[in-house]
């Protein structure tokens, strides 16, 4: 192989991927350190003149921003970001906590539930396995809008409106089918030799799952962990309808409420967006090892 040509090609590809992903994010982060007036200049000037961290301060302390608006008076129109800030922005820190909590619950439920169910669909032969598998996946194809009202009525009759538990319940129903499917597909790609060897050695089915299947499947498990975390973390529809007060509002609901105004504080919204990205990034940094290493091939060999 022409290894130099290959290296150059790879470098170009890597740079392109990095640019495609990063350019909008960098621009987003860039806007967070500008003042509202700098963001709204024509033609746009991406270099901040008076770099400020005010937007981040307002994200975590919207009450201070609102108080400042009160003291400045209405005359400060368009001069500062806080002019268009609605009261609901004070809920951001709590909503961030709610979002992370719900998302972590989803990771736990999916990693345990989907791994076991996915394993039994892929490896254990039992009656009704195929129709049940089909149904689980098909049930996810109905657009969320269609089941929104039925879900609302169920949750209402259970007395769970405005609770994080309701979100956990519905997101479970939403993520589990896909997670099971991913695990199923992943196991199909793996030869069952290792498990069979362990069973011949006299290990029980559950022992095989915990000692043999779990370690081999780590990349797959990490994939569904990331999938379920993200889905719950960014979900808007159900959260919008089923939550009512600060005790269960999640972050997408708050951001949408701020952004839904005809004129919204761009800088603060972008800063909230950057803050939103931090928990998932931390999660990925923690599990980086499992995403990167080629555990599968080494374990099967």
């Amino acid at each position: 192989m022409h290894s130099r040509k290959r290296k150059v090609g790879l470098a170009v590809a890597a740079i392109l991927v990095g640019l495609w992903v990063l350019a909008p994010l960098v621009w987003m982060a860039d806007m967070t350190i500008m003042t509202e007036r700098e963001i709204h200049t024509r033609p746009p000037n991406p270099v901040p003149i008076n770099a400020t961290l005010n937007n981040y301060y307002y994200v975590f302390n919207a009450a201070a921003a609102l108080a400042e608006r009160q003291s400045e008076g209405e005359g400060s129109f368009a001069r500062s970001a806080v002019y268009f800030l609605p009261q609901i922005a004070t809920e951001i820190p709590r909503a961030l906590g709610n979002s992370v909590f719900v998302a972590l619950c989803m990771v736990g439920i999916n990693v345990i539930g989907a791994t076991m169910a996915g394993y039994s669909f892929a490896r254990v032969r039992f009656r009704g396995s195929w129709p049940l598998f089909r149904f689980t996946i098909t049930s996810r194809l109905l657009p969320p809008v269609a089941v929104l009202i039925p879900f609302y009525l169920i949750i209402k009759s259970l007395g769970l409106l405005d609770s994080l538990f309701a979100l956990v319940l519905i997101y479970s129903a939403y993520t589990l089918p896909i997670s099971i499917w991913i695990i199923h597909g992943y196991l199909q790609a793996l030869p069952p030799d290792l498990e069979e060897a362990a069973r011949v050695d006299g290990y029980s089915r559950l022992e095989v799952i915990f000692n043999t299947v779990f370690p081999v499947m780590r990349p797959g498990i990490v994939a569904i962990g990331i999938y379920s975390f993200m889905l719950a973390y960014v979900e808007f529809f159900f959260a919008f309808v089923l939550t009512g007060t600060a005790s269960s509002h999640t972050l997408p609901v708050i951001i949408a409420s701020i952004g839904a105004n005809p004129v919204s504080p761009t800088g603060i919204l972008m800063a909230a967006g950057v803050v939103t990205m931090l928990p998932p990034v931390i999660l990925i940094l923690v599990f980086r090892r499992y995403i990167i290493s080629g555990l599968v091939t080494s374990a099967v060999k």
């Binding site: 992903v21 993200m230 973390y233 990205m277 928990p279």
Partner: peptide, 16 residues
């Protein structure tokens, strides 16, 4: 590093 960066866009909600 690229592996970590690449996933980040999905951490932003559809609305944002």
């Amino acid at each position: 590093l690229l592996k970590v960066i690449v996933i980040v866009p999905w951490a932003i909600s559809e609305y944002a």
